[in-house]
Simulated assay, not measured.
Amino acid sequence: MKTKIYHQEDIKQAARVIKQGGLVSFPTETVYGLGADATNSEAVKKVYEAKGRPSDNPLIVHVASKEMVTQFVSGISEKANQLMETFWPGPLTLILPLAEEANLSISMTDQLETAAFRMPNNSLTLSLIRESNLPLVGPSANTSGKPSPTTSTHVFNDLNGKIEAILDDGECEVGIESTVIDMSQPDKPTILRPGAITKEEIEKIIGAVFIDTHLVDDKQAPKSPGMKYKHYSPDADVIIVDGSINDWRHAINYYKTQQKEVAILSSQAIYDELDDYSVFAHYILSENKDVKSAMHHLFSGLRQLDTDLLGHNGVILAEGYDETSENMGYMNRLKKAANQTFFRK
């Protein structure tokens, strides 16, 4: 199969692929998704196969309207409705109780009583959903476990020959996946995956919100992607450095003594202070610890440095942030990429 690149003028053709049970990667404001008809179990099976995704890791359903959600859920609470009205289209995913007769294929093995829904803020993808008149599953369009794709080139590099097409709309604006909030129990709204929309922003709309980002064990069925498996990891080891500039120097020296090539993923401010330290490669996340810029560039940076280190015994030293609510989405992804590993001298 030759993977085609589609653009705005190819929406009808992309929708035809979806309706025929094929796979089309689509752009969103967060990352590129791998789209298939969410009501077609055979099409959803292809998504898992193309990604090499664990079969019990559920998929988010992408819709073009709140009305499309009502076809599949047993009800939308007042608080859930308020979140949709405020943040949709946008980087917020809501987990809602499924209706008994809901015709959705969101997991290969588990018959969950809930499903996750999102209305992405991208005009091309909304047009694709409307043209196909189908809800689309849309996990990140990458090889499972690798850094999520924020450009069509990333998707092509991972999935060329495995999917029918990629709908290209340039670089994603946000750069990390959506915030996921469990609204299946309206009296206990719980964030399961942090993202660009923070706990404080949500609480301004619906009041108190809980956070539960623990990883489930092998016997549990995750309600949300990212709750069970190592994610976002390049082939090179990733180590988080969250201390002073001296900690960065100690880290560089330490890994050089281990005969490793060192790559730096940091703000410009950190890199400038290391100008007397020779490193193999570097990628700048922001000018001066700007978390929005860091989120936007994180996955691209991990992918680029992994490419730079290809064939070398290398390590990526990545800049850690204080785990405030605003920084939680960035740190959630970075800690998973690093398998929770911090440099401690």
Score class of each variant (00 low, 15 high):
Pro186Cys: 11
Lys336Ala: 13
Ser105Pro: 10
Ala14Phe: 04
Met331Glu: 07
Ile202Phe: 11
Asn160Leu: 02
Met295Asn: 09
Asp158Thr: 04
Val209Lys: 10
Phe156Asp: 04
Asp275Val: 06
Lys289Asp: 14
Asn122Met: 06
His250Asn: 14
Leu96Thr: 01
Arg333Asn: 03
Val216Pro: 01
Leu317Ala: 10
Thr93Val: 03
Leu128Gly: 11
Leu305His: 06
Val47His: 02
Val69Lys: 04
His7Ala: 11
Ala196Phe: 12
Phe26Glu: 00
Met108His: 10
Lys292Trp: 00
Leu23Ile: 09
Asn327Arg: 05
Leu317His: 09
Tyr32Pro: 12
Pro186Leu: 11
Asp276Ser: 14
Thr114Ser: 14
Asp158Leu: 08
Arg130Pro: 00
His214Ile: 10
His250Met: 13
Tyr254Cys: 04
Asp10Phe: 08
Asp212Gly: 10
Asp10Leu: 09
Pro139Tyr: 01
Asp168Asn: 14
Pro97Gln: 07
Ala318Asp: 05
Lys345Arg: 14
Leu305Phe: 06
Ile206His: 02
Ala50Gly: 04
Glu287Gln: 14
Gly314Asp: 07
Ser65Ala: 13
Lys51Leu: 05
Glu85Thr: 12
Lys51Asn: 02
Gly301Val: 07
Glu200His: 09
Thr86Ala: 12
Lys256Gly: 06
Ser278Cys: 08
Ile264Arg: 07
Glu100His: 12
Gln20Asp: 14
Lys51Tyr: 04
Thr198Ser: 10
Glu100Ala: 15
His7Cys: 11
Leu134His: 07
Ala38Phe: 01
Leu192His: 02
Gln340Glu: 15
Ala294Tyr: 09
Asp169Gly: 08
Gly138Thr: 03
Tyr283Gly: 05
Leu136Tyr: 04
Val241Lys: 06
Arg303Pro: 03
Thr28Trp: 08
Trp248Cys: 01
Gly138Leu: 04
Val24Asp: 08
His296Tyr: 06
Ile240Gln: 08
Ile245Cys: 06
Ser148Gly: 06
Tyr321Glu: 03
Leu126Val: 03
Leu285Asp: 10
Thr257Phe: 12
His62Val: 02
Gly75Lys: 09
Thr93His: 05
Gly314Ala: 08
Asn142Ser: 10
Val216Leu: 12
Asp217His: 08
Asp242Gly: 08
Leu298Cys: 02
Ala337Met: 02
Lys46Pro: 04
Leu134Tyr: 07
Asn121Gly: 00
His7Met: 11
Asp110His: 13
Lys219Leu: 13
